[in-house]
Design a protein around this nucleic acid. Sequence first.
DNA 1: ATTCTCACTTGATCCACATCAATGTGAGAG
DNA 2: CTCTCACATTGATGTGGATCAAGTGAGAAT
Lengths: 248, 248
Amino acid sequence: MPSKQLAFPQAQCADCPIRHRAVCARCETDELEKLEAIKYYRSYEAGQTIVWAGDSMDFVASVVRGVASLTQTMEDGRRQMVGLLLPSDFLGRPNRESAPYDVTATTDLQLCCFRRTPFLGLMDETPHIAHRLLEMTLDELDAAREWMLLLGRKTAREKIASFLSIIARRDATLSGYGGMGEVAFDLPLTREAMADYLGLTLETVSRQMSGLKKDGVIRLEGKRHIVIPDFDILLDETGDDSDGGILS
Amino acid sequence: MPSKQLAFPQAQCADCPIRHRAVCARCETDELEKLEAIKYYRSYEAGQTIVWAGDSMDFVASVVRGVASLTQTMEDGRRQMVGLLLPSDFLGRPNRESAPYDVTATTDLQLCCFRRTPFLGLMDETPHIAHRLLEMTLDELDAAREWMLLLGRKTAREKIASFLSIIARRDATLSGYGGMGEVAFDLPLTREAMADYLGLTLETVSRQMSGLKKDGVIRLEGKRHIVIPDFDILLDETGDDSDGGILS
DNA sequence: ATTCTCACTTGATCCACATCAATGTGAGAG
DNA sequence: CTCTCACATTGATGTGGATCAAGTGAGAAT
């Protein structure tokens, strides 16, 4: 079953705005009320910086709409994205005062924030929130480690293919994907942001996208809208172990 | 203060063998007894594989002596190390049955293991263990992200210098380091393992080590014993932001 | 319409690191 | 003391992606 990776947890923020992956699903009514009390929303425009590395950060948050990215920058300007947060992802450190990296809105973005100190208190009272957070952090660690394999060992083409499959898995209208068939979605990142994600230059990203297009692996409708005629063909380009079943 | 990164948490397993970073320091006597009940030791020889990716893993553990590594392997044999565990580091996932990557002993290794299911139960009863684990996982995530910057954007020479400074910070006899002065330690990895860590080939690792030696940044006494005459000079080679204070 | 701008594409050239191929070395076995 | 084997170094050559440098095209401002 090559589609194993498509079984991705979905956001849980339907009618109740705090029903995100992080805090909830199992929350009792009174816990929800406590969360409501320390909750507020913030919106950002594409390109805006939310916090700079080293700044103090007095909230944790859940992504409601849009995409945020975590990036590290070297003195001479070299940049590497180290985290990509999509809706339902969690942002922040309950027990750390300052942010370890820049947090930027890569698209228009809405966050559901919780004030940090009271949230920390709530975690103590409510073990399942801490457990959920641990689980999410471990998932993020797994993602970071797969990303490390990508950065350290994959070719430019494989990097692009892997990136597209990651975005497709989370972002696409995956209506009825069953191993074949078309998948379509909009890229939430510029070529430059993709380059920062993948450890490439934007020129290389562009060239490889053109290459995949020329070879019929993807279609480009406009600059940002991607159509993948056959997801399995794309997966073959990722270099990933395709005999499935390895992951938990 | 360029030596900020030297303030690394020390192992806490002096006389009590389960006083590792993971579980303890704040444990009450009865909790220690419960831990004792599910605890056992295992030893491995250098090169031995502890678990293969996908295997079930019925324990979590703390590294007592030696070095373990987590590696991901692609179908065609390309390998990337994604975790390096030194004494006091934690290994495993309390609430996951199977290992997501190969775990290998890179030196002779002793683990202090806890049976997974009872450990999970203990976590529920003892919130501070869960908190400690979350904190450690977040630290590991930070380390993974710094590693991503290394893999994606640093030159071979910077990668080597960063690696040496990471190992020195954790492994060296840092008696009285204060910004200058000699630091010495043994490399716990072969050139090949270093290459897997850094996303390079072993030849490039060897060449860059020779380069640093020729430039007087390090001395090589034998193949594995490293002497760093001036740690700050090494830090200048890492490409890291040197004006300090950014990190938490 | 016209120009400006911003994101992207495409081309030509270069170089850091990979690859392929010997050669060196030192610790343990006999 | 010297064989051997695993690990490490060093050299010669090739190449994928970076770098430098023009284009292109679509939408916004004038």
